[in-house]
Amino acid sequence: MVVTEQGKEPRRWVVGWTGASGAIYGVKLCKELLAAGVEVHLVVSDAGWRVLKEELGWDAARRQEALKTGLGLGLGEESLLRYYPNGDIGAAIASGSFRCEGMVVVPCSMGSLSAIAHGTADNLLTRAADVALKEGRPLLLVPRETPLSAIHLENLLKLARLGVRIIPAMPAFYYGPQTLEDAVDFVVGKIMDGMNVPHRLFRRWGESQ
């Protein structure tokens, strides 16, 4: 867990959920960050809301309530979550003056990834990613697509060369996962490693059982 000094602002990250399959990865990441005392500024694309409904049964018509229920927010955790509609291009996270450690998009669709790669900041999610790039802050993308076309690969390479951390949603098997939750935890743990947020979501190579 993240321990902050008394009177010190909590750690702050922007998190984006898009329309790629794998909504559970974004949900689990936010749960872990909030439980660790990290302030989460969340933006979800319209396609992301559709995937949340299809994969997790969330009520996309009642979005604020769906977030509270789906993330299992307690009083303390609820105060750490800020949610922005994707069309709110004037939200705080659209400005470079908004202070945060960085941004992670999980899951990241190839459409959103392409928009980020080409600077097409026509909604809040892609604008926030554009801000991370221009301000030199960490940007982590978690693509979930297979197979990958040459266009996908070219966009991924372009972003990687710009310093973007690409963390594909690829669970490992060396630690003996027994459940789907174990596989999800591994991917989320790798994301949190990239964010430099401590966790105990999976057994690392060389660690005892």
Results as ranks from 00 to 15, higher is better:
Gly74Met: 09
Gly74Arg: 03
Leu75Gly: 02
Leu75Thr: 05
Leu75Trp: 04
Glu77Ile: 01
Ser79Met: 11
Ser79His: 06
Ser79Trp: 02
Ser79Pro: 00
Leu80Gln: 01
Leu81His: 10
Tyr83Leu: 04
Tyr84Pro: 12
Asn86Gly: 01
Gly87Phe: 03
Ala91Lys: 10
Ala92Trp: 07
Ala94Leu: 02
Ser95Pro: 07
Ser95Leu: 02
Gly96Asp: 15
Phe98Tyr: 13
Phe98Asn: 07
Arg99Leu: 12
Met103Asp: 03
Val106Asp: 06
Pro107Leu: 12
Cys108His: 07
Cys108Ile: 06
Cys108Lys: 06
Ser109Thr: 15
Gly111Arg: 11
Gly111Tyr: 01
Leu113Asp: 04
Ala115His: 06
Ile116Lys: 01
Ile116Thr: 04
His118Val: 00
Gly119Ile: 02
Gly119Cys: 01
Gly119Gln: 00
Thr120Gly: 00
Ala121Pro: 00
Ala121Ser: 07
Ala121His: 03
Asp122Leu: 03
Asn123Trp: 01
Leu124His: 08
Leu125Lys: 02
Arg127Tyr: 10
Ala128Met: 06
Ala128Asn: 05
Ala128Phe: 01
Ala129Trp: 11
Val131Arg: 08
Leu133Ile: 14
Lys134Thr: 11
Lys134Arg: 15
Glu135Lys: 12
Glu135Asp: 10
Gly136Trp: 08
Gly136Tyr: 08
Arg137Met: 08
Leu139Lys: 09
Leu140Ala: 05
Leu141Arg: 04
Leu141His: 08
Leu141Asn: 04
Val142Phe: 13
Arg144Asn: 14
Pro147Cys: 11
Ser149Gln: 12
Ala150His: 12
His152Tyr: 09
His152Phe: 08
Glu154His: 07
Asn155Trp: 01
Leu157Asn: 09
Leu157Arg: 14
Lys158Ile: 02
Lys158Trp: 00
Lys158Asp: 08
Leu159Cys: 07
Ala160Asp: 03
Arg161Met: 08
Leu162Ala: 15
Val164His: 00
Arg165Asp: 02
Ile166Cys: 03
Ala169Gly: 11
Ala169Asp: 07
Ala169Cys: 09
Met170Pro: 01
Met170Lys: 11
Pro171Ile: 15
Tyr174Ile: 10
Tyr175Ser: 14
Tyr175Asp: 15
Gly176Asp: 10
Thr179Leu: 12
Thr179Phe: 14
Thr179Ile: 11
Glu181Ala: 13
Val184Cys: 08
Val184Glu: 07
Asp185Met: 05
Asp185Leu: 12
Asp185His: 13
Phe186Val: 09
Val188Lys: 13
Val188Asn: 10
Lys190Glu: 09
Ile191Glu: 03
Asp193Gln: 08
Asp193Glu: 15
Met195Trp: 09
Asn196Lys: 12
Asn196Trp: 01
Val197Lys: 06
Arg200Cys: 08
Arg203His: 06
Arg203Ile: 13
Arg203Glu: 03
Arg204Val: 08
Arg204Cys: 06
Gly206Glu: 01
Glu207Ser: 04
Ser208Lys: 03
Ser208Trp: 03
